[in-house]
Design a protein around this nucleic acid. Structure first.
Lengths: 247, 247
DNA sequence: ATCCTTTAAAGCGTATACAATGGATGTTCG
DNA sequence: CGAACATCCATTGTATACGCTTTAAAGGAT
């Protein structure tokens, strides 16, 4: 049946030809693949609805379907991909309700940690964040929307990590990833997410220890992002073709 | 080697004897197993540190290791079990820091949704919650700590679900599960988690639409739970056996 | 010509087999 | 007698094979 040609070729597509003794250090390899796929989704190189066939991914990354399935399941638990029982995986297409909920939640939790961060932030932290914000602005100016969106999410994620609460930081990271998906579906081109200088302004407030002000600013910031979206529940899956194509 | 007794017994425990053609609707089967293990952890029937060997679980539930691995991975992403690279899975033993972070986060998010809930709660909702609280109190009185702990977590989870924000409700559910683990490690026997009548009082406030009061009450409630814990970083993994076993 | 039926193919779900690693135990040397 | 080393076993990591479901296409009937 045409599958005995590569009967014992366990190491397919060993691209670099590095000897390396082992086969790419399995765990880290999987983590790298996870981040690769995750980034592609966050950067909108894989749009919502895109199907992620296990065989294809296994082929691309040179691992077997077993590892791919593990990665897809992880992505599914983070709501970045949707696993339909016998249909496989596809990039999640957030509903309007999900979009509202994600931003409402961000409003609560990201504002809620501002005071903590204002207390603990060091000048080194501020510098690192400013560099991130600068890169984001540069990407935005040079038209690289994908990069800018990812950097924006990364800014919020890294900021959250400055609170000394790893639990909430991890959650915010997930929310930011999902927000990128939401932007892909409901974002109006032109406006994309964060205003250019908002992030710098926020850093200034935080570094000055103005927790309360930073909290209010973050609230407005998130509201602005949400307001820039056009969240309208899309019509039913099966649109009325007769109505659409009739004069 | 003692494992050929049930060599080809793919359909173990097919209780009803329904023909059904297929093998028990795989997905739901896995979900059931997941909930069984998850409940066992939350009820402290599996204590933190307990090892969860894949073969053993596969044998118990009559599925292959493949399915078990999927379930364990899911539990790991929810921080209920810890996957050590070549050592397998074990019930997570929360650190003191994790305990602090989880409760700090609960303080923020659970209080943050009180007003929403106070607005939307129906009398049917209140009734369902009261029944849960009653069951919890009964379990507590009859000494079934395991059941009480699980019901307490379920109360908070179900309460969160009354907000019209599925995203935050899911998150709170995870936090409550982790809290059960924390109670298992740092809980002082005698005091276990929620005071008996706190939950009823909370329902009363919410049903009366007193969102602000409910928020404050929830804040005190969570603080009380956290205060009842004895969060001290445990000594090193290798206890001093000489000291323990010497008179 | 459209709709329904039949048939084939493609992809997911699960089990199993094999490889590799880490811990535990037994042995040997200082 | 204790410690270091080597060997063995238990357990996980990964790949592959096979079955089943679903989807897509082709053919026939109305």
């Amino acid at each position: 049946m045409s599958q005995q040609e590569v009967l014992h070729e366990h190491k397919p597509a060993r691209a670099g030809g590095r000897k390396k003794g082992k086969d790419g250090d399995g765990a880290e390899r999987h983590d790298a693949i996870y981040h690769t796929i995750s980034d592609a989704i966050i950067e909108h190189r894989l749009r919502p609805g895109a199907r992620l066939r296990e065989d294809a991914l296994a082929d691309v990354f040179g691992v077997s379907r077993t590892g791919i399935r593990k990665i897809l399941q992880r992505l599914a638990l983070e709501h970045l991909v949707t696993l339909t029982p016998r249909r496989g995986a596809s990039v999640t297409r957030p509903t309007a309700e999900e979009a509202r909920d994600v931003f409402a939640t961000r409003q609560l939790v990201e504002c809620g940690i501002m005071q903590d961060i204002a207390r603990h932030m060091t000048s080194a932290d501020a510098r690192a964040l400013r560099e991130l914000a600068a890169r984001e602005r540069k990407a935005l100016k040079s038209g690289e929307q994908s990069v800018a969106i990812k950097l924006s999410a990364e800014f919020h994620t890294r900021l959250a990590r400055l609170s000394d609460n790893a639990v909430i930081a991890e959650f915010i990271g997930h929310l930011c990833s999902r927000s990128s998906l939401i932007l892909a579906v409901y974002g109006t081109s032109g406006h994309l997410g964060c205003e250019s200088h908002d992030h710098d302004e926020l850093i200034n407030l935080l570094e000055a220890g103005e927790g309360e002000r930073a909290k209010a600013f973050m609230g407005r910031h998130l509201k602005a992002i949400e307001a820039s979206l056009s969240i309208v529940e899309e019509e039913n899956e099966v649109p009325d073709l007769h109505h659409i194509f009739s004069p």
